[in-house]
Design a binder for these strands. Structure first.
Lengths: 203, 203
DNA sequence: AGGCATATTTGCACTTTAGGCAAATTTTGC
DNA sequence: GCAAAATTTGCCTAAAGTGCAAATATGCCT
């Protein structure tokens, strides 16, 4: 038998189905034209069950993004303890963004839903609070992982986590904005370089 | 007559009164035991008027914090254009946090409401989304001001704004947490120093 | 397999939030 | 003063959110 039972797995499936339905409907009709009830129906559960998982539309839409960002901290912990912090951080981040680049030899269709979800979150003002909350959660985990890895105390772990989170957010924003599309990896690398250089004033 | 008419001023007063009432009631009874209706009553306006100003409790509570953080960008713009970016940034930030230090020769009572509001926002999970949204708004303004001042394009202005926002947030958190209380100015300065040094791994 | 304990889903009742709309009130500019 | 414009307010309806208990599904032990 698996380490996770049927119960656990079905719960996860329901959660994903709800989040997926939320994003799809919101993209199709616009956020305001989607009732929580519709999302529940789309996912094949009762309205009340939706509320057992999420407290509102925004949370449901952001759920997959939250999961993804939380995995950065997880990836960091999985790295060899002796690896210096910054390379480890870059590695951990890259594993979560190893997609979206078109024309690359990799998978052809770069998680279209994820892209739509991100675009939606950056577009709809009503979702910005949620994306920010997601970042806060992720940064908390990241700070813990950094503290464990470096043994540093004080503000350092939280500073690094917050700064890295900021860099990721800025890079993501630029990625969506860039008209001649740029590879996410490059933007991310560029942002982290500037951060590590202490953000010196150009010119 | 003033440059702003009575209308403008009363609107601002109502806004402040509502935000103030929201914070006070939430601190007194706990966030969940405050209905929007109560806040409106406390501020002496109708429930419907409350909704003309804010769309929910959280927004009302965060309003004064938003105003305050927006003033950082304003302060940056007010600085001499030739001043290098980082000193100007530090100066602008400090002007908005020139309070809260007890035992300093300055004002005796350091905006008790503000402290309570901040503590509330950092404490109540339901408000974290709002504080984050506030930061996002402030960072947008800050990025614009930085872009204007430095003439830099690309991600630089947004990166600096986001990183500075992160540093301020971390310093504020530490300030509230520190058991033997530390001066906000020191924490802020420390955080910005680390940022400018490129957040090198200690040890 | 059978059966008990635990977790999840669901329906239902109820309170609160959210927002459109038009009437009443207040401020502004002339 | 007085008309135009903005703000406040009450009313109304849809939707969100929450507690509770019954029904259903799963895990676990014998």
């Amino acid at each position: 038998m698996d380490t996770v039972g049927l119960r656990e797995r079905k719960k996860q499936e329901t959660r994903i189905a709800l989040s997926w339905a939320a994003v799809r409907l919101a993209v199709e009709r616009g956020l305001d034209n989607v009732r929580v009830e519709d999302i529940a129906a789309e996912a094949g559960v009762s309205l009340r069950t939706f509320r057992n998982y999420f407290s509102n539309k925004a949370e449901a839409i952001a759920a997959r993004h939250v999961d993804r960002t939380l995995r950065i901290a997880e990836a960091l912990r999985a790295r060899p303890a002796r690896e210096p912090l910054w390379p480890a951080l870059r590695g951990a981040i890259e594993t979560q963004f190893a997609l979206g680049q078109e024309g690359h030899g990799g998978m052809g269709k770069p998680d279209e839903q994820w892209l739509a979800g991100i675009r939606l979150m950056l577009t709809e003002p009503a979702l910005q609070g949620e994306i920010a909350k997601a970042s806060a959660t992720a940064e908390q985990e990241l700070a813990d992982a950094i503290a464990t890895r470096t043994g540093a105390g004080g503000m350092y772990p939280r500073l690094v986590a917050a700064a890295v989170g900021a860099a990721v957010a800025v890079a993501m924003g630029e990625w969506l904005r860039a008209d001649p599309p740029l590879p996410m990896a490059d933007l991310l690398s560029d942002a982290l370089d500037q951060l590590q250089a202490g953000l010196p004033e150009p010119g």
